[in-house]
Amino acid sequence: MSSRRLDKKIDAAFKFVGLAATLFGLVVLAALVIDVVSDGHQRLGWDFLTSYPSRKPEQAGIFSAWVGTLWIMITTAIFAIPLGIGSGIYLEEYAKRNRWTDFIEINIANLAGVPSIIYGILGLGLFIRMMHLDRSVLAGGLILALLILPVIILSTREALRSVPSSIREASYALGATKWQTVRHQVLPAGFGNILTGVILAMSRAIGETAPLITIGALTYIPFLPTNPVAFNKEIPYIHLSLQGFLDPFTVLPIQIFNWVSRPQKGFLVDAAAGIIVLLTITLAMNAIAIYLRYKNQKRW
């Protein structure tokens, strides 16, 4: 009898220990946020967002960094989203179950776990040395696209798998072809969950530092990539340019890393302020993703 009473006590204790262990990570996260905000809030402001990096910490800003992040994200999205969703559709809706499909699946599972810095090395060999893209927006965007591709593929597959097969059957029964069924029924039905996966993947890409360092993305960039749309006084007044994709860049996490590695205290404050901006973006994207997932949960 006493051993049963002991079990009951252990049971009650575990309820407490389990909750504590679960919340521990969140407490640390809270400590992190408080630490960063208290370190960096005084540097935040309009000037910080609109100034280029500088040798003087109190004048330095993240203008080129956040514009660079925007450029890189657009480039990454252009390549990763269609390719990732397309690949997910193929594997989930078209591919027959055989050894070749099996091979592709193991391959994608492995790619999802390959350290991000390896993608940097791939980019170094492929985009910089072979294709001579230099340390450009295009090279950086392509590397991050390859990096998040497996994430998008896996979440697309999961999203499509959750679409009930009765929807597919109904569509086929009306004489729809495979692509019509996928395009008009399965994709729209899985859209919310695919979008969630894409947002999470993009939020991961925004925070990536290591692969971009590997291709030698410069850390001191006091200028922006060439504006894609420029206005001038001569006909045709608007000048479009893709030059920006071939220009050098920096991104927020690299700028932060650069400041963290400096010995001067002032730059550490800049780093903290930069982190506040970066964290705000990633946490906002995650919040949107969580909300979308929650909204899509109850459909079937």
Binding site: D35, D39, I206, E208, V260, L268, A272, L279, T282, N286
Partner: peptide, 26 residues
């Protein structure tokens, strides 16, 4: 579970450079 699981996953979403700062300076 539906509330805590996504919250916990935020831990994995924080950029690693931020964790680096936190490890070094906190």
């Amino acid at each position: 579970r539906h509330i805590i699981k996504p919250l916990l996953e935020i831990l994995a979403a924080v950029p690693t450079v931020v964790y680096g700062y936190f490890a070094l300076l906190f």
